[in-house]
Nucleic acid binder design. Sequence first.
DNA 1: GCTGTGACTTCGA
DNA 2: CTCGAAGCCACAG
Length: 104
Amino acid sequence: MKMNSAFNDKCYELLRQIPEGMVTTYREMARAMGTRAWRAVGTAMAKNTDLVATPCHRVIRSGGAVGQYALGTQKKVELLLGEGVEISNGKVCDLEKYVYRFGT
DNA sequence: GCTGTGACTTCGA
DNA sequence: CTCGAAGCCACAG
Protein backbone atom coordinates (compact mmCIF):
# COMPACT_ATOMS: atom_id res chain seq x y z
CA MET A 1 0.00 0.00 0.00
CA LYS A 2 1.26 3.39 -0.75
CA MET A 3 0.63 6.70 0.87
CA ASN A 4 -2.24 8.47 -0.80
CA SER A 5 -2.62 12.11 -0.03
CA ALA A 6 -6.07 13.66 0.13
CA PHE A 7 -5.65 15.29 -3.26
CA ASN A 8 -4.20 12.16 -4.75
CA ASP A 9 -6.92 9.99 -3.25
CA LYS A 10 -9.59 12.28 -4.66
CA CYS A 11 -8.16 11.90 -8.11
CA TYR A 12 -8.31 8.13 -7.89
CA GLU A 13 -11.86 8.27 -6.61
CA LEU A 14 -12.96 10.33 -9.56
CA LEU A 15 -11.12 7.98 -11.88
CA ARG A 16 -13.13 5.07 -10.59
CA GLN A 17 -16.33 6.97 -11.24
CA ILE A 18 -15.60 6.87 -14.93
CA PRO A 19 -17.56 4.08 -16.60
CA GLU A 20 -16.11 1.94 -19.35
CA GLY A 21 -16.04 3.44 -22.81
CA MET A 22 -15.67 6.91 -21.33
CA VAL A 23 -12.79 9.16 -20.46
CA THR A 24 -12.12 12.31 -18.50
CA THR A 25 -9.84 15.27 -18.77
CA TYR A 26 -7.38 16.55 -16.21
CA ARG A 27 -9.17 19.86 -16.22
CA GLU A 28 -12.58 18.35 -15.49
CA MET A 29 -11.16 16.34 -12.63
CA ALA A 30 -9.57 19.38 -11.08
CA ARG A 31 -12.84 21.25 -11.53
CA ALA A 32 -14.83 18.42 -9.95
CA MET A 33 -12.42 18.53 -7.07
CA GLY A 34 -12.91 22.21 -6.67
CA THR A 35 -9.30 23.00 -7.50
CA ARG A 36 -7.26 24.11 -10.48
CA ALA A 37 -4.39 21.77 -9.98
CA TRP A 38 -4.68 19.80 -13.22
CA ARG A 39 -0.91 19.93 -13.11
CA ALA A 40 -0.87 18.26 -9.74
CA VAL A 41 -3.38 15.71 -11.04
CA GLY A 42 -0.99 14.67 -13.76
CA THR A 43 1.83 14.65 -11.25
CA ALA A 44 -0.21 12.41 -8.98
CA MET A 45 -1.02 10.09 -11.86
CA ALA A 46 2.62 9.96 -12.77
CA LYS A 47 3.45 8.70 -9.30
CA ASN A 48 0.42 6.43 -9.36
CA THR A 49 1.31 2.83 -8.77
CA ASP A 50 -2.25 1.52 -8.68
CA LEU A 51 -2.54 1.33 -12.42
CA VAL A 52 -5.00 -1.53 -12.07
CA ALA A 53 -6.95 0.01 -9.20
CA THR A 54 -6.83 3.38 -10.89
CA PRO A 55 -7.79 3.47 -14.58
CA CYS A 56 -5.54 6.43 -15.22
CA HIS A 57 -5.54 5.41 -18.86
CA ARG A 58 -9.04 6.86 -19.04
CA VAL A 59 -7.66 10.27 -18.30
CA ILE A 60 -6.90 12.41 -21.32
CA ARG A 61 -6.09 15.99 -22.09
CA SER A 62 -8.66 18.74 -22.54
CA GLY A 63 -7.66 19.11 -26.18
CA GLY A 64 -8.70 15.53 -26.91
CA ALA A 65 -5.23 14.08 -26.91
CA VAL A 66 -4.92 10.93 -24.84
CA GLY A 67 -1.92 12.42 -23.12
CA GLN A 68 0.78 10.26 -21.57
CA TYR A 69 0.67 6.91 -19.86
CA ALA A 70 2.95 4.91 -17.63
CA LEU A 71 2.93 1.98 -20.04
CA GLY A 72 3.12 4.24 -23.07
CA THR A 73 0.74 6.52 -24.90
CA GLN A 74 0.23 3.96 -27.64
CA LYS A 75 -0.83 1.38 -25.05
CA LYS A 76 -3.22 3.86 -23.54
CA VAL A 77 -4.84 4.46 -26.92
CA GLU A 78 -5.29 0.77 -27.54
CA LEU A 79 -6.85 0.33 -24.12
CA LEU A 80 -9.35 3.10 -24.81
CA LEU A 81 -10.08 1.63 -28.22
CA GLY A 82 -10.80 -1.65 -26.47
CA GLU A 83 -13.35 0.14 -24.31
CA GLY A 84 -15.13 1.54 -27.31
CA VAL A 85 -13.54 4.98 -27.47
CA GLU A 86 -12.81 6.02 -31.02
CA ILE A 87 -9.36 7.51 -31.29
CA SER A 88 -7.65 8.92 -34.33
CA ASN A 89 -3.95 9.65 -34.51
CA GLY A 90 -3.72 9.53 -30.73
CA LYS A 91 -6.62 11.94 -30.35
CA VAL A 92 -10.24 11.28 -29.44
CA CYS A 93 -12.59 11.83 -32.38
CA ASP A 94 -15.58 13.01 -30.32
CA LEU A 95 -14.20 14.16 -27.01
CA GLU A 96 -17.46 15.67 -25.84
CA LYS A 97 -19.08 12.35 -26.59
CA TYR A 98 -16.65 10.25 -24.56
CA VAL A 99 -15.62 12.69 -21.84
CA TYR A 100 -17.26 11.92 -18.51
CA ARG A 101 -18.28 15.01 -16.58
CA PHE A 102 -18.70 14.83 -12.83
CA GLY A 103 -22.08 16.00 -11.61
CA THR A 104 -23.20 17.20 -15.02
C1' DG B 1 10.94 26.11 4.46
C1' DC B 2 12.26 27.02 -0.30
C1' DT B 3 13.26 25.33 -5.05
C1' DG B 4 12.47 22.29 -8.79
C1' DT B 5 9.80 19.40 -11.51
C1' DG B 6 5.67 17.53 -13.96
C1' DA B 7 1.05 12.21 -17.43
C1' DC B 8 -1.28 20.01 -18.20
C1' DT B 9 -3.80 24.42 -20.03
C1' DT B 10 -4.30 28.49 -22.55
C1' DC B 11 -3.09 32.59 -25.03
C1' DG B 12 0.00 34.75 -28.48
C1' DA B 13 2.85 35.13 -32.75
C1' DC C 1 -2.56 25.88 -38.76
C1' DT C 2 1.83 25.14 -36.03
C1' DC C 3 5.19 26.51 -32.65
C1' DG C 4 6.42 29.03 -28.23
C1' DA C 5 6.16 30.87 -23.76
C1' DA C 6 3.84 31.67 -19.43
C1' DG C 7 0.88 30.04 -15.71
C1' DC C 8 -1.02 27.00 -12.47
C1' DC C 9 -1.13 23.66 -8.17
C1' DA C 10 0.65 19.82 -5.53
C1' DC C 11 4.43 16.73 -4.30
C1' DA C 12 9.42 15.41 -3.86
C1' DG C 13 14.17 16.71 -2.75
